[in-house]
Each structure stands twice: as C-alpha cells, then as structure tokens.
C-alpha cells in the first residue's frame, strides 16, 4: 500500500515535470546557453584540454547544435555525466541533450523514453591481442583469457560470440578501462575486448603500439547517437537535422573553410542552397534562423572535418572512417535529403 502511494507520488511528479516544462528550444534561447551532457572523459570524444576547454567528437556535436540555435558554438555548458547519471540528467531536464557515446538500443529508446537523433558514430566491439600471440582472427582465441569490463553490454556480447562459435574462454572481470589496460599490459590476460574505437585509442598510447593488433572481427553493433527527451519533437528535430546537416555538408563538399563563400549567395547546387538557407525556408520550419546550418558547419566543420580533427587517422587515435564513411564511399552515413 505504502509502496503504491510512493510510486503514485513519483508518477504525479513525473507528469508534472512533463506538463510544466516549456519547449526546450525556448528554454535554451532564454538561458542563452545549451546544457549538453558529455562523458567525464573519453579520449577523442570528450575531454577538457589544458585550458579547460572541452574538445572531442561528441563535444563538436554539442557545439554544432549551440551554433545552430544560439549562433555561438561556445555558448555550451558542458555537464560531465557518468554511465549512471547520464539518463537521469537528461530525463530531469538538467541537460538539454546528451552527446555521450551512448548506444542506441530498443529499451533506451522505447522504455526509458528518449529520442535518438541519428547515429553519429558506428562502433562495434573488437579484440586487441599482443602480436606475439600469433593470432589473426578472434576465432583462434580458443581457451584464451579475456580482460573485460564488468556490467557492460560488451560482457554479454562476448559470451554470445564465444558460444555461437563453440570455443571456450576465461573472462577476467575488471572495473574500469584504465585498470583493464594495466592488467592487459601486465600480461594478466591474452586479449582485451571493448569498443573498437576505445581499443584504437588505447593502443595508440602504448609504448610500442606495433606490438599489439586489433583483430578484424567486430562482434556487436554499437551505434552511438546523441539523444534528447521524448515529447519535444521540435527540439528532437533540431538535434537530428543538425547532425544531418553536418553529414550532408560533407557529402556536398561544404567545409568550414568554404561555407561562408557558399552562403554568401545562392549557387548552382539547389541542395546546397537549401541547406545553407540561401533558398527555401528550411530554417524557419525548425524555428531557427535561415543560416542555422551555416553556423553549425562553421563551428567545427562538417562531419568529416570533425572526425579527422578528433579521432581520424591524423590524430594519435588514428581511427579509419570504416563504417563511418559516407554511403557514397561504402560507409553507412546516409542523411535524408534537405528539401
């Protein structure tokens, strides 16, 4: 009985929360700042630099939205969130959007009542082994000891993979990524498994990266996506189409260097014109200014530029585009048309 009352109170509080909040766009405009939830620190995706300025691939997503909405890429209040606090921070309105390499799953989308605004990084679980082990495929890992972070989906994926391939393994459960790398380097396990982007980032920091290889098998799908709350479709659209604008800009060859030139006057390519607001009313439909996409692209460049600067092959992390190449280059990035 008491429990029912408690849950009832929770529901009422929840309903009140939904009913009382004005549109997120109005809140952000009134505040003059975008509250963006990011990771407390993940190489290449979100980390403060020596001057305390947040940098990274997820951070660029926040800055692009801030630029599109407020016209200023620096008008972002970054809220560091942990794996435990991220969803509550978003649900309670502490942040307006979450760009925290969060995997898009059914239950998060449907049950937790969030809206994913399209994938900004296609990740997948991989394996790293020392070259001296002489293994070239994950299927050769029969009987291996594998370092794995506990309580993550990677643990379940690992069990599935080994069972479906009928080979055995011995898990070495470990709490954090940093600890896991220490253990792996100390030889406590033959292989380390986590998201492939994380493996590449970690391998780049080893004393001798060449002594370790990342096996070709990717054993799970981890589409990482920015997300917003259910129920405010206008705000969801803004985040979704900001991401799409960055992808389309790369497809159309619009970069941070030439976007001003393209936006100065309507050009020959009608889709570029529509994207940059020199033709049509797309910005007004979103409730933003006509040059919203211009500002978003000028903030951190198009998708490809942001990728190269933060995690691409020229950085120490050195990720190849792979699945994250444009569909025209054999990847999965495919933005709906701007029309």
């Amino acid at each position: 009985m008491k429990k029912t009352i408690f849950l009832g109170a929770l529901t009422v509080a929840g309903l009140a929360a939904t009913a009382a909040s004005a549109s997120t766009l109005d809140d952000v405009l009134a505040r003059g700042k975008l509250n963006c939830g990011v990771s407390t620190g993940l190489a290449g995706f979100a980390a403060p630099d020596a001057n305390g300025v947040w940098q990274g691939f997820d951070v660029d997503m926040c800055r692009a939205v801030a630029a599109a909405v407020l016209g200023d890429p620096m008008a972002v209040e970054f809220v560091p969130t942990t794996g435990q606090t991220r969803f509550t921070a978003l649900a309670s309105g502490e942040v307006d959007m979450l760009a925290r390499n969060t995997t898009w799953t059914f239950s998060r989308d449907v049950d937790l009542k969030f809206e994913f605004a399209g994938t900004n990084y296609y990740d997948g679980q991989g394996f790293m082994v020392p070259t001296s082990l002489g293994v070239s495929s994950a299927k050769d890992l029969d009987g291996a000891t594998v370092c794995i972070q506990t309580g993550t989906t990677t643990e379940l994926n690992l069990a599935d993979f080994f069972r479906s391939n009928n080979i055995s393994y011995e898990p070495v459960p470990i709490e954090t990524n940093a600890e896991a790398l220490q253990q792996y380097n100390a030889g406590a396990c033959d292989a380390y498994t986590t998201d492939a982007s994380g493996l590449a980032a970690s391998r780049a920091t080893f004393e001798n990266p060449a002594d370790h290889i990342i096996l070709p098998e990717i054993i799970s799908k981890e589409p990482l996506a920015p997300l917003v709350r259910h129920g405010d479709n206008q705000w969801g659209d803004i985040v979704r189409w900001t991401l799409n604008a960055l992808i389309t800009a790369e497809e159309l060859g619009v970069t941070s260097a030439n976007v001003a030139e393209h936006a100065a006057a309507a050009g020959d390519n009608p889709e570029v014109n529509r994207l940059l607001g020199t033709e049509g009313e797309l910005g007004a439909m979103l409730g933003l200014s006509a040059d919203w996409a211009v500002k978003a692209i000028a903030a951190g460049g198009n998708y490809g530029e942001s990728f190269e600067r933060n995690i691409g092959s020229s950085t120490p992390i050195g990720l190849a585009r792979g699945l994250n190449a444009l569909w025209t280059n054999g990847g999965l990035l495919y933005s709906p048309p701007f029309r």
Binding site: S39, T40, G41, L42, A43, G44, A46, A47, P48, D49, Q55, V79, P80, T81, T82, Q84, T85, A89, A178, L181, A201, S202, A204, T205, F206, T315, P316, I317
Partner: peptide, 23 residues
C-alpha cells in the same frame, strides 16, 4: 566523482582522456 563532479580523481580521468596524456 561517481555523480559526475570533477574532483581531483575525476579530473585525473578527464586528463587521461585527452589524447596527450592517455596512459
């Protein structure tokens, strides 16, 4: 650090997350 405030331990994690100081 577990609720996302960047105390020295949390900042150590954030510093390690920059590509300069990872590891």
């Amino acid at each position: 650090v577990f609720i996302g405030l960047l105390d020295p331990i949390g900042l150590a994690g954030a510093i390690r997350a920059s590509t300069d100081w990872q590891g």
